[in-house]
Design a protein around this nucleic acid. Sequence first.
DNA 1: GCAACCCGTTGCGGTGAGCGCAACGCAGGT
DNA 2: ACCTGCGTTGCGCTCACCGCAACGGGTTGC
Lengths: 245, 245
Amino acid sequence: MSEGVDRAMRVLELLAREPAQLGGVAADLGVHKSTALRLLQTLESGGFARRTDGGWTVGLRLIDLAQQALDSLDVRAVARPHLAALGRDCGHTIHLAQLVDDDLVYVDKIEARGQVRMYSRIGRTAPLHASGVGKVVLAYRPQLTRLVEGAALRAYTPATICDPAALRAELTAVAEQGWAADDGEFEPLITCVAAPVRHADGSVSAAVSVTAPTVVATLADLRRLLPRLLATTQQISRDLGWSGP
Amino acid sequence: MSEGVDRAMRVLELLAREPAQLGGVAADLGVHKSTALRLLQTLESGGFARRTDGGWTVGLRLIDLAQQALDSLDVRAVARPHLAALGRDCGHTIHLAQLVDDDLVYVDKIEARGQVRMYSRIGRTAPLHASGVGKVVLAYRPQLTRLVEGAALRAYTPATICDPAALRAELTAVAEQGWAADDGEFEPLITCVAAPVRHADGSVSAAVSVTAPTVVATLADLRRLLPRLLATTQQISRDLGWSGP
DNA sequence: GCAACCCGTTGCGGTGAGCGCAACGCAGGT
DNA sequence: ACCTGCGTTGCGCTCACCGCAACGGGTTGC
């Protein structure tokens, strides 16, 4: 629709991945470098891009805006202290994922006490069929299963549930027991347990998970944390206005 | 330079502050609403804007990109575990600020153990003359004093140092003692101590601070944490390749 | 030393992308 | 029944933006 804006967004995608120079940006967009320069200058004037020694990078304004947007998410604000307390108690990585349109997005994260590197990032989307938070949300939002019914379920690991029937059975079990596990279904050797967060109207559009590498904690270990996790999600739900069981 | 992109950035600024509807966006930009709609649709197609029940909001892609950019900041990655450890030891809010061009930007934050609300946000800029991290950076980057020399120093509180001569004296003291304090100079009743982080070449372009409301910790209390803070910044500096004293 | 690069940057015209306009469908409120 | 304000669509006009070509300044190579 708006060509310039479209190109600008592609530029930001590029720069966020890694800094680039004018020529590279121009080539990647398939435009003349003078065009790319003017784009970058415009972005620079707004603080969305900046120059470094070795080329162009995303600007601070982008980071500021994103953080502003994150802070305006009500679920995040309400949940944060509870997540921090949970993280302090168990020492593992805590994730908060929220459903936005048809995507389940990680919107908060408490780092594990250990120094173990784990690849996850606020802003990324969680695979609905291959993550604890995803399965929890699916289990309580039947209409969302349309997103995984027809589509071929991607196998991230050998443990990923790719068979629709098996997934349906899993979701039924999750809905009944009130929590979900993920034993290496997205990344090998990474395990988690997840539980739903309810809004005032009782709907589930967010979830909390406790994640750890199996070398640190096995699924059995994490299961022992379930009462603590469920207490956390229930407290968050109550803070959001939910008054169910 | 590029009008469309310029408008798009203004739209994002608007949406990040608070969700808005088409009419509001159009009015604020001073354009016809059809124009605003096309802009929003373009942003939507790239994931930079999205529709909610009550209007338009910033999209997830923006958050993802910003987080990606944050993660690529080397200082942040190196410092994070040390900051977490420091936060665990003292329980107060920890900030990491980095100099980007002429702005000192908060790039990481460890929340305080207590539930006390404090207004700071990753992505915001720190006032150079009215914050611990700002004064530390100024003290070790004399060429930057040009930024505060001529300009009228804004008085955030009665304690803010607005007199150039007084500031110069303060910076000299900071440079000598190796750390800076901020006793209500930016926000009343908020105190902090800050120390410099050095890069491999010995230059100072980042700083760490320990912040607390005076009701929780007085300046005297925070001073007692100085050895721990200085040990942290020195360790970060070493991890960055610095081999000084 | 000069030449050959590659970087970012700057006028300059032609043209098509995107602008404003006007009109429509649809909800929700009075 | 009306009205108000939302998002949306088609249509010409025009000016913003594109590509081109040329320039200045670093760095590299022989």
